[in-house]
Design a protein around this nucleic acid. Structure first.
Lengths: 222, 222
DNA sequence: GATACCATTTTGGGATACCAAGCTGGGATG
DNA sequence: CATCCCAGCTTGGTATCCCAAAATGGTATC
C-alpha cells in the first residue's frame, strides 16, 4: 500500500527530526539503501523530496543532513511570523467555531506536566492547525513546512523555568482573541509570541553551541 | 557541465511556463524521455522537482501539467501578498540603495511599448528582486516560487487598455516609498497593487474561461 | 617526518531491465 | 446491437548495472 519511496521518505524524515541522525551527518545513497532495505531509485526520490523540505542538502557531491544553522533559523522564523500572522487574520474572519474547538482540545490535551515530547508536538500542532483554519493552503503549508524545519532546533532549545507555562498561556490568549474575531489583537499577540520565542530560541542555541557540537551536531553560526 | 536532470528540468519548466505544453496535458515518463533524449532516471528526478514547484501533479497514476486552477490562483496570490509585504518592510529597513538602483534599472528597461513578453518578465522580476533585497531567503523564495506558479495565469490575463501603464506607475510609486524608507507606505501601496491585480486577474480568467478551454487548457473553477 | 603522487575504491549520475497494476480494444455472448 | 470479459499493451515503481569523477590511502621521495 505504501510505496518504498514513501516509506523511505517517512522513516528518514522521522530519524532526522528525531535526531537519530545528527545534523551535519553525511549520507550516502547506498548507505540509506542498505539501512532501509530499499533500492537506490526510491532512496533517491526520498532524498530529493527531503532536499526540498530543507532536511537534507548537498555538500559538493554527496548528501548531508542539514546542520543547525542559526542564520537560517532566524530567517525562517521571520518568514514564519509573516505567514502565520497573515493566516491568523484570515482565521479570525472565517470564525470557524468547530475548528477552534479542535484547537482548544489540543491546548487542554497537554500541559506543563506532560512529557516533553508531547509538549513539543502539541506546540507545533497548535500553530500548524491555526494556520490550517485560515483555509488558505499556501499559508498553511508555509507554516507547516517552516515548523517542520524548525522542529529540531526547538527540540534542542534549553528552556528556562516556566517557559512552557508561558507559551501555553500565550497560546490560550491568542485562541481567545481569535474566538472573539479580534484579528488585530490576535495578530499582535501571535507576532509577539513568535518573535519572543525566536529570540529565546536563538539565545539558547548560541549559548549551548558548545554542548551541541559536543554531541556531534554541526552548528553553523549566523 | 549541466546534468541531464537539470537540463530536462529546465527545458520542461520552460515549456510548461511558455504554454508549449498546455495546462492539464498528460505527461508520461517515457514520453518526456523520448522528447528530451534522456533516460528515465533524470526525467523522474525532474518531474519530482517540478511537482514540488506545483507545475506538474499526479493524477491517480500518471503525471499531468498543473491546470489553471482559479481557487489556487486566488490563495496563492493571498499568500504572495502576505510574504511580499513582509519582505518589502524588511527591504525598507535595510535601505540598500545599490540594490534599489538595480530595481530602478529594471523599471526603466521596459515600458508599455515593449514586447509583451518583456513586460511580463520584467513585471515578475520587479517583485522577485524587491523580495530578494529583504535579505531573507525564505521570503524571497516564497515570492519567487509564487510568481513562477502564477506566471502562466498572468500571461493568459486579458488586460484592459492602460493596465500596463498603471502597473508600472504603481511599481514606481512603491519603489519611491522604499527609497525613502517609508515602510508603511510601501507596504500599503504594495498590498493594494497585489490585491488589485489579483481581482483583475481572476476576473479576466473567469470571463475568458471558455476561450481558455477552447485552446485546450484545463481550467478548474474556484 | 612531511609531502607529493598514483592506484584503488567509493560515490552520485545515468541507463536499462523487470514487474505488477491499470487501461484498452476487440471479440464472444446474450 | 448492447454488454461483458479477457488478452495484450502501457505505465509508473523498483532493482541493477555501468560510468566518470572524486575521495581515499598507501608509498616513494625529499
Amino acid at each position: 500500500m505504501m510505496s518504498q519511496t514513501q516509506s523511505v521518505e517517512t522513516q528518514l524524515r522521522e530519524m532526522i527530526l528525531g535526531l537519530d541522525i545528527g545534523p551535519g551527518e553525511k549520507l550516502t545513497e547506498r548507505g540509506v539503501e542498505a539501512r532501509f532495505a530499499a533500492s537506490r531509485t526510491p532512496v533517491r526520490a526520498a532524498l530529493l523530496r527531503l532536499e526540498t523540505e530543507g532536511l537534507v542538502g548537498r555538500e559538493g557531491r554527496g548528501w548531508t543532513v542539514a546542520p543547525i544553522h542559526l542564520g537560517e533559523i532566524e530567517q525562517l522564523s521571520v518568514y514564519r511570523e509573516a505567514v502565520e500572522v497573515a493566516a491568523v487574520k484570515l482565521t479570525c474572519q472565517r470564525n470557524d467555531q468547530t475548528g477552534l474547538d479542535g484547537l482548544e482540545a489540543l491546548l487542554v490535551s497537554c500541559d506543563a506536566r506532560s512529557a516533553r515530547e508531547e509538549v513539543h508536538r502539541a506546540g507545533m500542532d497548535f500553530h500548524i492547525e491555526l494556520a490550517r483554519l485560515s483555509g488558505n493552503d499556501f499559508l498553511f503549508r508555509g507554516v507547516r513546512d517552516a515548523m517542520t524545519r524548525l522542529s529540531r532546533a526547538r527540540w534542542l532549545e534549553v528552556r528556562r523555568e516556566g517557559a512552557r507555562e508561558r507559551a501555553w498561556a500565550e497560546h490560550r490568549a491568542i485562541l481567545a482573541a481569535v474566538r472573539t474575531g479580534d484579528a488585530e489583537t490576535a495578530a499582535r499577540l501571535l507576532a509577539a509570541h513568535i518573535s519572543g520565542g525566536r529570540e529565546r530560541l536563538l539565545a539558547s542555541l548560541a549559548a549551548d553551541r558548545r554542548g551541541l557540537k559536543a554531541r556531534g551536531f554541526a552548528v553553523v553560526a549566523a
